[in-house]
Design a protein around this nucleic acid. Structure first.
Length: 705
DNA sequence: GAGCACTGC
């Protein structure tokens, strides 16, 4: 997918980059052209001022709208002036693709290739040269993980947190940790970069007055409001799109809708209207864009519209920040967004449609003015706009804190409630999450992290899955292969894509792979068959599987397997140390010989394979269903539910009533199982349990509150 | 009998 076009190289420069790669001496023509472009950026005239301020302050807050060049230029200025003192600069991004494409762009501007002086580091992918890389673009999640291993982040002399205004849990947490770290590491420079409006919040947080404002480079956008509120927002959006099409000049339309369902409805309504267009009317092409759409269909929205044709893109919030589409001149904004909210009392995540914030509305409008002047039609009144919140509620206030608290404990922060958050989560969020971690034995009664908790924190998973994995192995080591597959699959959404109007249901597809009375086992069976399939592409096509996400499940599985084997290695080392404590003299020798042995094995490249065989982690053809069912009952017992007389279920831990999701294999099963484990609760108009496995009462452990 | 926005390790 094409992400943040302004920051990523366009097709021409990509081609040219290949020639740079081939020619080690560099493409001087391109380099000179890029240097000229750099000097024409509006940020260039602030270069010296920026450097002076950053040099004389430990902490700087930089405000600048998207497109002003701050992400690509400022790190280069710092290196050109030697402010990094020959050590590495980290620049964090909330999204993987942004980190990669920006690194590519900057490498080009610095006449080098990615992985040399400029690198990137994201999950599953890294291009870094230990000795050479001076500028590292990374996801904020990667830097956060690094703080667990090295709390003083000693690789870096400057850390830049970009897009801080998005207020993701990761960047919020990083900013708080950096504030603490700035006391201990006076040599570390910290730069917070944010969109204009929220900078003062960050400056106040750091008790700093060093705010630098940069002007953007956006084209003018005319904003129109509705005169009266609309009863039906889809209807209003439909009329607005048609009005633009018939009355406005050329240019594509981007319409924000809340979800897949509304997008499909709107698509149908528009198609019906287009049927009735007069023959001489200009053509209107409909494109849709949402995360569950397979990438080859997403790409259609990025294709340039043909001469004499107008494109309308019906999109979820994905087009607000995650992707940028060229050529948009008109934005239709109903002012609504679907958002997740966690209820710590009911232990339930809810998806709610809520009004957008003023800053979101501004960001959406900005999508119309990236190449030329544009127009934004807001389907709400000016009065309504004035009543909107300034910003969306930060993610940390809407989340389950279990992961955050376990990470903080693993870093060594004992007093999590006394920690300085930018926005403090609610007391109930702390209480519930600490209790939850104690239930899993990740924290002890005094809220100190246990050995089990430390191992859990090493795994890139929500605590409950990390717990499940370790408990499953302890219960029955033979089950680990299936458990690894099941957990990996539970991390990936949208495994299937069934086009609207297809004569097959998701359930029909699941039945082809059914194994036991379990959605999890059925999907494991499918994953293992995919893994063994010679022609993976046709396997996916035949079974309506989203191949990209299937690949992702295998990637996750590989990574989890590696982490898991690491944990086992650490355990055996620790045991060895303890066993040899009595004979201190031998200890060193033994450790050395073990180290040597591991090194030798590594050299042979056999370690992983050997460990895989030893611990049965590799993907197996044979799946033992009984073993898995018993493991999931023990490892995921906080996600157990019991059947009621009326056919509904009660979630045992929270005592909440719920229904089996219609996409589950168990939706039709009769009689309904007495006890089940579910993976997920979703609350829409009803509360549903998704991904279900029937368990036996004998395996069940009571965890009610 | 009915339906999940987006991102990250």
């Amino acid at each position: 997918m094409e992400i943040e076009k302004s920051q990523s190289p366009n097709k021409n420069t990509l081609k040219q980059q290949v020639s740079v790669d081939k020619n080690k001496n560099g493409n001087l023509g391109l380099f000179n052209k890029l240097q000229k472009e750099r000097k024409n950026l509006p940020i260039f005239k602030h270069r010296q001022g920026l450097l002076d301020k950053i040099r004389s302050n430990q902490i700087s807050v930089i405000a600048g709208e998207t497109g002003c060049g701050k992400t690509t230029q400022i790190p280069q200025y710092l290196i050109e002036d030697g402010l990094n003192k020959n050590r590495m600069i980290a620049v964090t991004q909330p999204r993987r693709v942004a980190a990669i494409t920006i690194a590519q762009r900057v490498a080009q501007e610095m006449n080098t290739t990615v992985g040399n002086k400029v690198g990137y580091s994201v999950r599953f992918e890294e291009a870094v040269d230990k000795n050479n890389t001076k500028l590292l673009y990374m996801t904020d999640g990667m830097l956060l993980r690094e703080t667990i291993v090295d709390p003083s982040l000693s690789r870096f002399s400057i850390i830049v947190i970009d897009e801080a205004h998005e207020r993701t849990v990761n960047s919020d947490l990083l900013i708080s940790l950096l504030k603490q770290l700035s006391e201990r590491r006076k040599d570390l420079k910290i730069i917070i970069m944010s969109a204009t409006i929220e900078t003062e919040k960050f400056a106040n947080f750091f008790e700093s007055e060093n705010i630098i404002y940069l002007e953007g480079r956006c084209h003018p956008i005319e904003v129109f409001y509705s005169k009266k509120p609309h009863a039906d927002y889809l209807d209003a959006a439909l009329n607005t799109i048609l009005q633009i099409h018939f009355e406005e000049q050329d240019g594509d339309i981007l319409c924000f809708l809340v979800g897949q369902e509304d997008i499909e409805d709107m698509q149908q309504m528009l198609e019906e209207k287009i049927e009735l267009f007069p023959k001489e009317a200009k053509k209107l092409k409909i494109c849709t864009l949402y995360a569950a759409l397979p990438s080859h269909l997403q790409l259609l929205a990025f294709e340039k519209s043909l001469e004499g044709e107008r494109k309308v893109i019906l999109s979820t919030n994905i087009a607000e920040t995650s992707v940028t589409i060229d050529g948009i001149k008109y934005v239709v904004d109903p002012g609504l967004v679907k958002t997740r909210k966690y209820n710590p009392n009911k232990l339930i995540e809810m998806l709610l449609v809520v009004p957008v914030s003023k800053s979101s509305a501004m960001q959406r409008a900005g999508r119309a003015g990236r190449q030329s002047a544009g127009k934004c039609f807001r389907l709400y009144t000016k009065y309504t706009h004035d009543t909107l919140a300034e910003f969306m509620l930060p993610e940390i206030l809407r989340s389950n804190l279990s992961t955050v608290i376990l990470q903080m404990k693993a870093i060594g922060i004992k007093d999590v409630k006394g920690f300085q958050f930018i926005d403090r989560p609610h007391e109930d969020q702390f209480i519930e999450s600490i209790e939850n971690l104690q239930l899993m034995n990740a924290l002890d009664a005094n809220e100190n992290i246990t050995l089990h908790g430390k191992e859990m924190a090493e795994l890139p998973l929500e605590p409950i899955y990390a717990h499940f994995m370790l408990v499953a192995f302890a219960t029955n080591p033979n089950s680990i292969s299936v458990v690894l597959s099941a957990i990996s699959l539970m991390q990936v959404e949208n495994l299937f894509f069934i086009p609207k109007g297809a004569k097959i249901s998701l359930l029909d597809v699941l039945l082809r792979f059914q194994l036991g009375n379990s959605d999890q086992l059925t999907k494991v069976n499918m994953l293992h068959q995919y893994y063994l399939a010679k022609n993976k592409k046709s396997f996916c096509k035949e079974n309506f599987i989203n191949q990209k996400n299937m690949k992702k499940a295998l990637e996750v599985r590989q990574q989890l397997e590696n982490y898991f084997l690491d944990i086992l290695k650490k355990r055996s080392k620790k045991n060895q140390k303890q066993n040899t404590k009595a004979s201190q003299n031998q200890a060193n020798a033994l450790q050395q010989s073990e180290e040597q042995q591991i090194q030798e094995e590594l050299a042979k490249g056999n370690t992983l394979k050997k460990l895989q065989e030893e611990h049965k982690t590799a993907i197996q053809q044979e799946i033992n269903t009984e073993e898995f069912v018993s493991c999931i009952a023990k490892g995921l017992s906080v996600k157990a539910a019991k059947l009621n007389n009326d056919g509904t279920y009660t979630i045992i831990r929270s005592n909440i009533q719920a229904y089996i999701h219609p996409e589950s294999l168990l939706f039709y099963s009769k009689p309904k199982p007495e006890y089940i484990i579910f993976n997920e609760v979703v609350s829409t108009i009803k509360t549903y349990l998704r991904d279900i496995t029937e368990i036996q009462f004998s395996d069940f452990k009571d965890i009610s509150k």
